[in-house]
């Protein structure tokens, strides 16, 4: 993809090796101002390594990084005043309280005492942590910890926010809150760079997504364009009991508008450009002595695009948004 002209993050040919492992293997990224960029890939794809280089925690072996038109290739710390970072681990100080942690984070960016105290209170409220303000961080639950880490990252109101898998391994309630706060931040003008291995999270939040696999970007496009091939397409996944022979030829003759795939042993996928009538298909199969164990109907989504492009099964990327589907 041609990089956007208004890019605030511009990365070219970025490489990072650890011995023989090419953790990041020549990626190009351009994130436009006010955008919500998603870096989507399975574990070990190179997301954290890439974010470390962008934020000044690691030096690239090759390539260039420009943040807000500051060249960070030579000096990884050059643009750090412009960015907020939420690392993949909740690394605040266990012995400080929530309030103290936020104030300390603000101080690191040079906020004056009055300003940081006011801001800390404001953010504790916003993140639903006002009741835990005076409690030590070590006693927080995982979800609370993550919320406080995000609050800490925006104490200095950075125009650019990096988040490394912010909803991994935390409770559904916290995840939901984090997603809606991130969407609101982005609406208010913060440019966001998010990594995730939750496909539905990326689909819900991001306006531009890059698929990263084995350190390489295999596809990078605006969400609408990524979704184009699956727009208005429906799928029915049918699991049948072992030993049944699925009469594919009969099916194709009876339902000429549909496409049938054998996706696994005892599993078939039926695709259509119209909403599917599951009952009809199931009855057809059962009339032919094929016992249907499960039939799952859904609209095609980014998940299908991801599987198609990367060849990675969605089962290795599961666990994302539990509430129903739909954009923010």
């Amino acid at each position: 993809m041609a990089p956007a002209d208004d890019a605030v993050i511009r990365v070219r040919g970025l490489v990072k090796r650890f011995g023989d492992v090419h953790a990041v293997d020549g990626i190009d990224v351009a994130v436009s101002e006010g955008g919500f960029f998603g870096f989507l890939g399975p574990n070990g794809a190179g997301k954290t390594t890439a974010i470390s280089m962008l934020t000044g925690l690691a030096r690239p072996d090759a390539g260039s990084i420009e943040i807000g038109s500051i060249d960070c290739s030579r000096n990884p710390k050059a643009a750090q005043h412009l960015i907020g970072v939420v690392p993949d681990e909740s690394n605040l100080y266990p012995e400080l309280t929530g309030f103290e942690n936020l104030c300390f984070s603000g101080a690191l960016y040079g906020l004056r005492k009055k300003v940081r105290q006011r801001k800390a209170e404001e953010l504790l409220d916003l993140f639903g942590l006002e009741g835990a303000a005076e409690r030590k961080f070590s006693g927080y639950s995982k979800g609370m910890k993550r919320r406080l880490v995000i609050a800490a990252s925006i104490m200095h109101e950075p125009p650019l926010l990096f988040l490394d898998e912010p909803t991994s391994g935390i409770d559904v309630e916290s995840s939901r809150m984090i997603r809606s706060l991130l969407a609101a931040l982005n609406r208010n003008g913060t440019t966001i760079f998010l990594t995730t291995h939750f496909i539905d999270e990326a689909e819900r939040l991001c306006d531009r997504i890059a698929f990263i696999v084995n350190g390489k970007i295999v596809r990078d496009d605006r969400l609408e364009r990524l979704l184009q091939p699956v727009q208005g397409r429906y799928a029915l996944t049918v699991t049948v009991s072992g030993g049944c022979v699925v009469p594919y030829t009969d099916l194709q003759q009876a339902f000429p508008g549909l496409v049938f795939h054998e996706t696994a042993e005892n599993e078939l996928r039926i695709e259509s450009s119209k909403p599917l009538k599951a009952g009809l298909l199931v009855r057809f199969l059962e009339d032919r002595c094929v016992e249907v164990v499960e039939a799952r109907k859904r609209q095609l989504s980014l998940e299908d695009v991801f599987v198609e492009v990367t060849g990675i099964g969605s089962s290795s990327m599961t666990g994302g948004v539990k509430e129903g589907r739909g954009r923010r």
Binding site: T55, G56, L57, K77, Q80, H81, V85, P87, E89, N91, L92, Y93, P94, S105, L108, Y109, G110
Partner: peptide, 15 residues
């Protein structure tokens, strides 16, 4: 080791 040090390295202060 607890990665809290990264917070300091991320701050816009010379090393």
């Amino acid at each position: 080791k607890a990665k809290a040090f990264e917070r300091l390295v991320l701050a816009p202060i010379p090393l």
